[in-house]
């Protein structure tokens, strides 16, 4: 198979995630965009397992030195990332809800970043 295909898909997903993080103002939508980014990372990790494993056998034409290759760890890494994401979403939900309780909004533009607005 051509690993370039999943890699490029992952790149596109990460780009979409970045766009979402930059564009969205609703905290929950930002969280969703971050999930896209994390999934892109996972896709890269899983694909890397494939490309690394075959590289070990010297299959592709290009000889590339991976003396310490830990092929096969990508899948495990991806599982860790999934669990990390789950933990983060769990806490994130609580934080968003608390924010909503206090301010009746989930728009993060209203998170004051400037000192002037805080000190008023």
């Amino acid at each position: 198979m051509h690993v370039t295909i999943p890699y490029v898909i992952a790149a596109a997903l990460f780009g979409l995630g970045v766009y979402g993080v930059a564009r969205r103002r609703n905290a929950i939508l930002v969280l969703m965009a971050v999930e896209l980014m994390l999934n892109a990372v996972n896709l890269i990790l899983v694909t890397a397992d494939v490309s690394l494993r075959s590289a070990l056998r010297g299959v592709p034409g290009e000889a590339w030195a991976t003396p310490n290759s830990q092929a096969g760890s990508g899948g495990a890494f991806a599982l860790f990332v999934i669990v990390l994401a789950a933990a983060e979403v769990g806490v994130g939900l609580a934080i968003v809800l608390q924010f909503y309780r206090v301010r009746r909004a989930v728009a993060i533009d209203e998170v004051p970043l400037d000192e002037e607005r805080v000190s008023e």
């Binding site: 780009g15 979402g20 930059a22 299959v59």
Partner: peptide, 26 residues
């Protein structure tokens, strides 16, 4: 920014892995 990141990453991967047939692993 989003398009730049996506296209940049895609170009990077395309540059590194080319259009090469990799065998399906175990």
């Amino acid at each position: 920014i989003g398009a730049g990141v996506g296209l940049g990453l895609a170009a990077l991967f395309a540059d590194a892995f080319r259009w090469i047939e990799y065998p399906r692993g175990a």
